[in-house]
Simulated assay, not measured.
Amino acid sequence: MHKHITFLHTSAIHIETFARLVKAIDPDVKVEHVVEEALLTDAQRVGANDPALVMRVHDAMTKAASTGAPIVVCTCSTIGGAAERTPTDRHFVPIRIDRAMADRAVALGPSILVVAALESTLGPTRELLEESANSAGVAIEIEYLVAEGAWPHFLRGDWTAYFEAVVTAVNAIAPHSVSAIVLAQASMAPAAEALSGMGIEVLSSPSLGVQSVVEQLHNRRIGLVPTC
């Protein structure tokens, strides 16, 4: 399997982050990016499990693989479940960026705080954590926190205010009784450093996810059907 990854984003803000993370691990990996902002916008409106939206997510993942990437990674937590279930006929492997984060959170459990700037992200993240817990054969307890007012800052491109709103929301509830804090959206990752002094591991999906994906690219034998 050749070293080539394509990322499906719902915001162009993620392009630089994921390109940098891959390059830091293996600069020889070819990285491509596809941005489909409407998928997240519509998921907020109709729900991530809407059949028509799921088909559009599958189509976007398949299109992202059309240049030959053996792995396509969806970086949006809201549509990640649908992306990961994309039928591929073994032509590529669909991955959601937050799966490695969920596995780590479950390992740190049992009590997990999920923080999101969008309420629509909570359901898909809960389902993902429950999948990871079931696979590990452990029980978990999940608490939820929506960082009120954070998302409008994101939409305006005011990243500093966005991260500060996330940090302020977490600090306000002082969640010292939990085992791990999950920042459910990839865009929230910079807030992890500001929360690192809490004595609780704060998890974000980009670095953990990219490390896992590149390891799979290097080490895992995937039975893919040749595309040429």
Rank of each mutant, 00 (worst) to 15 (best):
E16Q: 06
R104A: 10
H4Q: 09
L195K: 09
L53C: 12
L40N: 09
C76I: 04
D26C: 06
T227I: 08
K30P: 00
V106Q: 05
P110I: 08
I5G: 11
I200P: 00
S132T: 07
V57R: 13
N134E: 13
E36Y: 13
P51Q: 12
N49S: 07
D28H: 15
L53A: 14
N49L: 03
A150K: 07
E164Q: 13
L113I: 07
G157V: 09
I71P: 07
E193R: 11
R126D: 10
P51H: 13
R85Q: 15
A64H: 13
Q211H: 05
P226W: 07
C228D: 11
K63I: 00
A24P: 00
A100C: 04
M188L: 14
V93Y: 13
H4G: 00
H9I: 08
Q44S: 13
R156S: 14
T75P: 11
T168L: 09
R126V: 05
L217N: 12
T67F: 09
A52L: 12
S205K: 04
Q211I: 00
L129W: 08
N49P: 01
A180I: 02
V167S: 02
L128H: 12
E201T: 05
S77L: 04
F7Q: 15
L39T: 11
A186I: 03
A107W: 01
I97N: 10
S111L: 01
H9S: 08
H153W: 10
V34N: 10
C74I: 08
A65K: 05
S132A: 15
A107S: 13
V202A: 01
E32D: 14
R45W: 03
A52E: 15
A83H: 14
G47H: 12
I5T: 14
T17W: 12
D42Q: 14
Y162S: 01
A184T: 03
Q211R: 12
L108K: 13
C228Q: 05
P175K: 11
L53N: 11
I142G: 05
T125E: 06
A165I: 05
H2F: 05
S207Q: 14
V106S: 10
F154D: 03
I112A: 02
T88A: 08
R220S: 07
V115E: 03
A83R: 11
L113G: 05
T75L: 06
D89I: 02
M55V: 09
T168A: 13
E193M: 05
A136I: 06
E84Q: 15
R156W: 04
Y162N: 02
Y144A: 07
S187N: 08
I95G: 09
A117M: 06
I15N: 09
A102V: 04
V31M: 10
T6I: 00
W151I: 02
P94W: 12
G223K: 14
C74D: 15
I173E: 01
L21K: 15
P51N: 09
V31Y: 14
T67C: 03
A189E: 09
R20F: 02
P226Q: 03
G199V: 01
G137L: 04
A64C: 07
H33G: 05
E32P: 00
T41W: 10
E32S: 09
C228Y: 13
T41M: 13
V115F: 10
V146D: 01
A192R: 08
V106F: 07
A48R: 04
A12N: 06
A169D: 02
L122S: 00
W159H: 03
A69C: 04
